[in-house]
Design a protein around this nucleic acid. Structure first.
Lengths: 87, 87
DNA sequence: TTCCCTATATATAAATC
DNA sequence: TGATTTATATATAGGGA
């Protein structure tokens, strides 16, 4: 998309990668919300950025709570999620 | 998108809603995978369809295992997820 | 319901500020 | 870092088989 076709491989330039991450994360959130509403589904998304920063979101139809543990540095992590449907 | 602009509300026609769900789920999977590769991030997605069917997927950079419990009919559910980064 | 097709709506890369 | 602006790549609604 956008001006140029993009190869599917890691964007090496740091600033560009971060910008793309922010844009696509918000795009994913939008798609998630649309799918949830249009199709009466519940969707939860967990994201770990390349710097290890974590973010989560879910469709408006439910409350979601996420708990994370990353005991062995970052190669293994554990997540406990609680979903409470609003309906 | 597509031929007509779509209102952001539940698609009432059953067959149409199911078709849209399948299409958008695969779209979401694609976006998830792209984000994961382009931005060197890890992403996990959990989906509950309107019929209660569950599906999960994650970027190629990690192995993800999902365990679900829905003790109180379907209004509350609990998920335990294990992520193992391949790198 | 599952593939194609294709006209449009959207997402978004790059550029500029 | 953000915001805004395009030009272009993609996603996908609706329809037909």
């Amino acid at each position: 998309m956008g001006r140029a076709k993009l190869n599917l491989k890691k964007i090496e330039h740091n600033a560009t990668r971060h910008v793309t991450f922010a844009k696509r994360k918000s795009g994913l959130r939008k798609k998630t919300n649309q799918l949830s509403i249009l199709c009466d589904a519940d969707v939860a998304v967990m994201l770990f950025s390349s710097t290890g920063r974590l973010s989560c979101f879910s469709g408006d139809k439910m409350y979601a709570f996420f708990f994370f543990f990353a005991p062995l540095n970052l190669s293994l992590s554990l997540s406990l999620s609680l979903f409470l449907l609003k309906s």
